[in-house]
């Protein structure tokens, strides 16, 4: 039998959130034929995976993890992913949109919108179809963004992975409607009611490992459109007039490296991150370039199948 997952005591508030999420995760395992947990390597995915380990203890989660690899993640993220898979002893599937790669889609030449559409949204839909998954967990939280605040915990997708925000199933009590017809799928968000602060406080209380990029360290960055972008490899050429400099930065949110802006910070520990957050006056997604493309841009991406 595996050993108990180490943890310190958590506040009543975090304990309630934890129980709610565990209930949601178990529900999916009990009701769906072939579920999968999207694992994006970030802090939210870390908490979600930790909760899944707790939910089924002493069993292992009865579903695999899926990482949609755009091939532009920070190298640190991939290393962290592989460590985590080994540590938790779970099955990981990795999917890359080969057609997108063949077409030469990338965040620098193709622009963030097309890259995200092809390498994330399309790739995700292809992966779900290829393995015939009928339910997919995502780590999205309602506090991240306005259209996410309106989304259900069990979010129905018609055939073709389409989300219709005007026609969502009412979700009363904890009586989730898990019924779907063939070809339809459900996206499930166990962290719906968590906030960014909850995630960090829980990560600290439970000693959940996170990618080192969340902690401040001297890193090579360039300033582009007023944002600090880290050159993680030499696929990102310097524009005329740009020069790389070493600054002490960290990331609040991790995605593809050319699309994730860093912030200057001195927070080198979880305590430091939490203190900084409590004092911060900007939201975590402000560093995500893809969100700022247009006003209702998240709703639009979500309708098309983005998580």
């Amino acid at each position: 039998m595996s050993t108990t997952i180490a943890s310190r005591s958590v506040s009543l508030h975090l304990k309630r959130l934890e129980s709610e999420s565990i209930g949601i995760i178990r529900e999916v395992a009990a009701e769906f034929r072939n579920p999968v947990m999207l694992y994006s390597i970030g802090k939210d995915s870390g908490v979600m995976l930790h909760l899944a380990m707790k939910a089924f203890y002493p069993s292992k989660p009865p579903f695999p993890l899926l990482h949609v690899d755009t091939r532009w993640k920070f190298r640190d993220m991939i290393r962290h992913r592989d460590r985590i898979v080994e540590r938790y002893g779970v099955k990981l599937l990795v999917y890359t949109n080969a057609e997108g790669v063949a077409r030469g889609i990338n965040p620098i030449a193709s622009g963030s919108q097309l890259h995200t559409q092809v390498m994330k949204t399309e790739a995700l839909k292809q992966a779900l179809d290829q393995w015939d998954f009928d339910a997919a967990f995502g780590g999205a939280r309602r506090d991240e963004e306005k259209s996410r605040a309106k989304e259900r915990v069990f979010s129905f997708r018609s055939a073709g992975h389409v989300w219709d925000p005007r026609n969502q199933r009412p979700e009363l009590w904890n009586l989730y409607n898990t019924r779907i017809a063939k070809g339809e799928t459900i996206r499930v968000f166990p962290l719906s009611n968590w906030t960014e602060l909850d995630i960090w406080q829980y990560t600290r209380a439970q000693d959940i490992p996170v990618v080192p990029l969340y902690f401040a360290a001297p890193r090579p960055v360039v300033t582009r459109d007023g944002l600090l972008i880290m050159r993680d490899d030499d696929r990102m050429p310097l524009l005329p007039g740009e020069k790389e400099e070493t600054r002490t930065v960290r990331f609040r949110s991790l995605g593809d490296y050319p699309l994730s802006a860093a912030i200057e910070s001195r927070a080198t520990t979880l305590d430091g991150i939490i203190d900084e957050m409590l004092a911060s006056r900007t939201s975590e997604r402000s560093g995500r370039l893809i969100d700022n493309d247009e006003a209702a841009s998240m709703e639009k991406k979500k309708r098309e199948g983005y998580f």
């Binding site: 309602r142 306005k146 996410r148 605040a149 309106k150 906030t195 602060l197």
Partner: peptide
């Protein structure tokens, strides 16, 4: 700030339940 869906913003009304968090 709370009427998150496009249709709601255009019509100036709340259609769906939105969940907000503060502490």
């Amino acid at each position: 700030l709370v009427d998150g869906l496009e249709a709601e913003r255009e019509q100036g009304i709340t259609i769906d339940v939105a969940y907000r968090f503060f502490s």
